[in-house]
Design a protein around this nucleic acid. Structure first.
Lengths: 336, 336
DNA sequence: CTGAAAGCGCTTACAG
DNA sequence: CTGAAAGCGCTTACAG
């Protein structure tokens, strides 16, 4: 804390020759205060670089104006596997700042939920943003039961009602697969995220639909699942190559898995896209920067972040529950 | 906030038939309280899932127990270019959590410093962690003048005294260059971060020393600078290839620039490492996962993050200023 | 060892 | 339109 002499509302009350009630009201733009006095008080505050004590304000108002972003890293530490989280954090931070909220990042043990009580009951935060996580359903249920304000990135669970933001996964699956069909591929495989995730089921539905539309059938040997990580892309691709050595395309549910898949394909002496075309998902920054730039389904991640911020704050303030589905788009680069 | 009936210290005071002073002391492990009463009170607190209101506590104690991580993204949003920030955030978060501090991420306009007053005077945070940034010197000076508690990742400015954590950049430059010499390279180029950065000057000093030790001279045409970003690695490598077409190795000051450099080299039809060997810096997660796994200088980023957290908190609590230089190590993979 | 009371710096219902 | 006062939930010097 700097050694300024005017630190509190009371200090500036003295300077302005009014009560601190009046200062509080003026600085908070209360319509009760006469325009003139308000301007005068604001001028004094500005001149002295005055700044409310957030902590006193929070105590009095019963809200912290801060939101927690709940995350647990894939490995022990943050790494490239968390690039999606990083990118969405950028959007969330932007959105929150614009609304006057602060952005707390909370690393949790995914198998617990006591962090929710801790952060909410202590008044440290007003709500939570749930990101992609293998334990998302578990977290959602816990937060829902305790009536904690939260919003989630992902398709909402049926029979629950809470705010959410998600991409249009069906269209994503459709666009990716249609593109592969359009460029003449005959044997199109699918590498999903975890098969119990609704997002993944929807992308699969899009994949299936595109094939149906082209009068084709899904070959179960060409369908496999990972967990979005690069390593799981390796594994899945190896499995696929074993089960269906003649495949000539694969639609992969994340850019990271796509990069893993490409590495495996190339290590087997096959070429991308000539022998096997690969379409990723997300359009993380790495997709364009990759050695072989990825054709992928773009999710507008910065906007997703901003919407998560805005809609959670709206929910906290007004109780309005918003579920948004964002459009996705096909970005054609080199891998397909 | 859940609808529990016991929310405050006063609630549990009633249950325990003591005053709230006693409850406060017991829960804070004051030696004043009799063991027996303390245990009893703690039991009741636990049973009722009690949790201090952080906001009241902060107001009373005059400290927030939260630290701000100051960041500004390279582009408008977070992207792969911020991978270093992401990885160090993991360590910081871990360190802070262990100390009972919260982790606020603050995106700032790098050309301003008013965020410092805002966050400090409002009591939102107790201190700042300054990450790599093109405006770091400017930020440091501003924080230093206002006597704000902060710690920085990087070599401390001369004539200032504040806590810091940095890697051993001289050894880094030395190890990288010695390795390139050892594998028989004759014309070893250098791609630095910004040339006004002390880190970069030290890495250059290591580079120069290794060459001197081998009885070689630095060729100024083989030295160029970027800003750590992938794109700047492209540019720098192109320049180098123009100025010194016969170079057979390059020591690059970041993994991201190294990846850019490799892309350029390969696009010119040359091979890595056969024609040109490339050593990166940092050992970000992408170094190992890259299509062509990077030989690089590892900085222990998770530990750096933890030390930043610990030493800043120590400084806040006790005024002790710690400057640590962390060892680096050469990691040999495929690119050199 | 324990309690009553003042204080941290705001907000806001209640008077005027 | 403005002020005095109570209250938000803690901590801690002061008494006992």
């Amino acid at each position: 804390m700097s050694k300024k002499t005017v630190q509190t509302i009371e200090d500036i009350a003295k300077l302005a020759n009014v009560s601190k009630s009046t200062v509080s009201r003026a600085l908070n733009d209360s319509p009760l205060i006469k325009e003139e006095t308000r301007e005068q008080i604001k001028a004094i505050a500005k001149e002295n670089n005055f700044c409310f004590k957030a902590t006193a304000r929070s105590l009095s108002l019963g809200q912290s104006h801060t939101i927690a972003f709940i995350t647990h890293s894939y490995s022990e530490c943050f790494s490239m596997e968390d690039l999606f989280s990083l990118e969405i954090m950028g959007g969330i931070s932007t959105g929150l700042t614009a609304l006057g909220y602060d952005f707390l990042v909370v690393h949790v043990d995914p198998h617990k939920t006591d962090w929710a009580h801790e952060y909410l009951d202590s008044g440290k935060v007003d709500g939570f943003i749930l990101n992609t996580s293998s334990r998302k359903q578990y977290h959602i249920k816990a937060l829902y039961e305790m009536e904690a304000p939260f919003i989630v990135w992902g398709v909402p669970e049926p029979n629950y009602c809470y705010p959410s933001v998600t991409g249009d996964n069906i269209s994503g699956g459709l666009l990716a697969t249609e593109h592969l069909i359009k460029i003449g591929r005959q044997k199109i495989a699918f590498i999903g995220g975890a098969d119990y995730e609704r997002e993944v089921q929807q992308r699969y539905a899009g994949y299936e639909k595109a094939l149906k539309n082209a009068n084709r059938e899904v070959n179960p040997l060409m369908v496999t699942y990972g967990d979005y990580s690069l390593a799981s892309g390796n594994t899945a691709m190896e499995q696929l190559l074993q089960q269906a050595p003649d495949l000539d395309a694969v639609f992969v549910n994340s850019d990271l898995m796509a990069i893993g898949a490409i590495n495996v394909i190339q290590s087997k002496g096959k070429r991308v896209p000539e022998d096997i075309a690969v379409v990723g998902y997300d359009d993380l920054s790495i997709a364009a920067l990759n050695n072989l730039p990825l054709t992928t389904i773009r999710q507008n991640i910065p906007m997703a972040g901003r919407l998560l911020a805005q809609n959670l704050v709206q929910f906290i303030k007004s109780g309005v529950i918003t579920n948004v589905t964002m459009p996705v788009e096909l970005v054609i680069r080199k891998s397909a």
